[in-house]
Amino acid sequence: MQRARIDSKELIERLKLEPHPEGGFFRETYRASGKVTRENEVETRSASTAIYFLLCDGAHSAWHRIRSDEVWHFYAGDPVDVHVLDANGGLVTHRLGNALDHADSVFQAVVEAGNWFAAECRDTEGAALVGCTVAPGFEFSEFELAAPGALESSYPQHRELIARLSLKA
Rank of each mutant, 00 (worst) to 15 (best):
44 T>E: 10
92 V>N: 04
146 A>K: 09
148 P>F: 07
166 S>W: 08
25 F>P: 05
133 T>Y: 03
126 G>F: 04
110 V>R: 13
126 G>W: 08
75 Y>G: 01
30 Y>D: 07
68 S>Y: 06
125 E>Y: 13
9 K>C: 15
85 L>Q: 00
88 N>A: 15
150 A>K: 03
121 C>G: 07
120 E>S: 10
63 W>C: 06
159 R>N: 14
12 I>G: 04
117 F>T: 14
148 P>Q: 00
38 R>W: 07
156 P>E: 12
162 I>E: 12
29 T>G: 05
67 R>T: 14
56 C>W: 12
168 K>F: 03
139 E>M: 12
117 F>Y: 02
14 R>G: 14
128 A>Y: 01
92 V>M: 01
15 L>P: 00
123 D>V: 00
6 I>N: 01
139 E>G: 08
12 I>P: 08
78 D>A: 13
5 R>S: 15
5 R>N: 14
61 S>P: 03
112 E>P: 02
68 S>C: 11
35 K>W: 10
159 R>Y: 12
54 L>M: 07
110 V>P: 07
36 V>A: 07
101 D>N: 13
11 L>T: 06
121 C>R: 02
103 A>S: 15
117 F>I: 07
161 L>P: 04
38 R>M: 08
42 V>P: 10
59 A>W: 02
111 V>A: 15
144 E>N: 10
99 A>W: 01
168 K>A: 08
152 E>V: 07
83 H>M: 05
46 S>V: 14
141 S>H: 13
21 P>G: 12
163 A>I: 02
42 V>S: 10
19 P>M: 07
128 A>F: 04
48 S>A: 15
27 R>A: 12
153 S>G: 07
87 A>C: 06
81 D>H: 14
30 Y>F: 15
53 F>L: 03
54 L>K: 00
31 R>Q: 15
40 N>R: 11
127 A>S: 09
37 T>L: 04
119 A>I: 01
9 K>G: 11
21 P>A: 12
43 E>C: 13
34 G>Y: 11
2 Q>N: 13
116 W>G: 09
100 L>P: 12
109 A>C: 11
76 A>Q: 10
52 Y>F: 06
10 E>N: 13
107 F>C: 15
48 S>E: 13
70 E>H: 02
41 E>I: 12
155 Y>V: 04
50 A>L: 01
124 T>A: 13
143 F>T: 07
164 R>E: 13
23 G>V: 03
147 A>E: 12
66 I>S: 07
125 E>N: 11
72 W>I: 00
163 A>T: 06
103 A>P: 13
168 K>E: 10
161 L>K: 02
62 A>E: 06
55 L>R: 05
3 R>Q: 14
19 P>S: 08
103 A>H: 11
8 S>V: 06
47 A>S: 04
23 G>F: 03
40 N>P: 05
71 V>C: 09
19 P>V: 08
71 V>K: 02
51 I>F: 01
141 S>I: 13
105 S>F: 03
118 A>D: 02
34 G>K: 04
91 L>Q: 04
121 C>E: 13
80 V>P: 01
55 L>K: 08
41 E>G: 02
85 L>I: 02
80 V>I: 04
112 E>A: 11
14 R>W: 12
53 F>H: 05
159 R>L: 11
158 H>K: 06
110 V>D: 14
88 N>M: 12
95 R>Y: 01
156 P>H: 09
114 G>W: 08
48 S>M: 15
